[in-house]
Write a protein that binds this DNA or RNA. Structure first.
Lengths: 246, 246
DNA sequence: ATCCCGCTTTGACCCAGATCAATCAGCAGA
DNA sequence: TCTGCTGATTGATCTGGGTCAAAGCGGGAT
């Protein structure tokens, strides 16, 4: 049951997220500097990476696995505010504490940079700051997209939206242009509920309904097959436009 | 009824948002460069600044007035995803179109920068990129805060949250530490509903309820007096903690 | 003055999703 | 094989906020 908590140190040049993470634009010499302040950390599914309010003395990229950012109210209501997939960035240069709980949802490996030197590099190597700005703007767009989901979509549309986001970001799918996809659902029903602003019962019922209607098929509880992604996008209420038939 | 659409050109050095906008960190010589690519535009309340999908050949700071970013689904459901107050930034370097409708909600003055030269300055003057990153990270935090509001708060809590956000950003309040505040509500009931993921009827009912309960007082429809801000924060369900009495 | 017209309030009713509760399925450990 | 536990499903009922409908209320134009 206990696994070692140490991942083998890795060379940046054959890092799986090399071309998508904060370091994407770095030149070899810049990478070298980063390598000096980086270290890997592994977490098991369910472990907390940082608690909201805690001091965070590093920033990090997700290398593999899935993590979540969640906010909790005093009475226990929870809202997930970010889903971190490989290459996503956590932490904010120029701030000590995390405003959110960061939790490993599957087994997780993160590439961490000590905060102080990373902040200094931000000032000296524009490639890092540029890439971080770009990623932050993308995340802001994603957050705003999600506000539409939370504020205006029905339960069924919410589920379909979440499934299509995960499907689209799945590495197997992203470089194929098939209509059908199969992927692993990295979240429990409860975590999905926290993301969608629903209860887990409603999540379960809507997934059953999508299955009944042939929009999705389940293989076990966690593996999802989508025979026609356009149908799913339709259910999500998004402007799929595409979908010219035949 | 028709007003002139041209604001008097202004010197950056006595700009009201000089120390909070994207240009906040610029040195005098950098400001000079910015001044060469900037121009002012004014909009009347209700006018659209850009439509979602339209090409946007500038980025801009709000100088005075209030604007909103909204997303609309095909069937007309609308969600506001950003509220732009003075010093806030609109537009994204490195992208042509706006993904949102940008609308003036009150009379509005914007300080616009031609996109192409602004993008070039981003590469050459780190002070602009640095400040933009900082502002974008702040906006991301605000968007995530708002996801909690949309996903988990009750109608009453949503209204209280919106009112306290506006109260806190009100210039009159922000440099006083009073318990009570009075401010203008820059939004119609419908716009509030679009922000909060509610209907305008529910907004109206909850405002009436807060008034009945003495949390707020109305002077006309648009001016709000909050006798005790802590009470309002309590209603918002936020961790106000502070509030040591006497 | 008075008549619009856009915004707001209020009421009556309804329904999507929450809540409460039972059951089920898969899996690790004894 | 059985037992216990965690997560998922399904059912029955309740309710907050949506929907539909009808007034109220200013403020500008005639």
């Amino acid at each position: 049951m206990l696994k070692t908590n140490i991942a083998p140190p890795q060379d940046c040049s054959d890092c799986p997220i090399r071309h998508r993470a904060v370091c994407a634009r770095c030149e070899p010499d810049e990478l070298k500097l980063l390598e000096e302040v980086k270290y890997y950390r592994s977490f098991e599914a369910g472990q907390t990476v940082v608690w909201s309010g805690d001091k965070m003395d590093f920033v990090a990229s997700v290398v593999s696995g899935v993590a979540t950012l969640t906010q909790t109210m005093e009475d226990g209501r929870r809202q997930m505010v970010g889903l971190l997939l490989p290459s996503d960035f956590v932490g904010r240069p120029g701030r000590h504490g995390s405003p959110y709980d960061v939790t490993a949802v599957s087994d997780l490996v993160m590439c961490c940079f000590r905060k102080r030197p990373f902040e200094q590099m931000m000032e000296t190597t524009p490639h890092i700051a540029q890439r971080l700005l770009e990623m932050t703007l993308d995340e802001l767009d994603a957050a705003r997209e999600w506000m539409l989901v939370l504020g205006r979509k029905t339960a069924r549309e919410k589920i379909a939206s979440l499934l299509s986001i995960i499907a689209r970001r799945d590495p197997v799918f992203s470089h194929s242009d098939q209509r059908s996809v199969t992927f692993n659902l990295p979240l429990t029903r409860e975590a999905m509920a926290d993301y969608l602003g629903l209860t887990l019962e409603t999540v379960s019922r809507q997934i059953s309904a999508l299955k009944r209607d042939g929009i999705i098929q389940l293989e076990g509880k966690r593996r999802v097959h989508v025979p026609d992604l356009d149908l799913l996008l339709e259910e999500a209420g998004d402007d799929s436009d595409g979908g010219l038939p035949s």
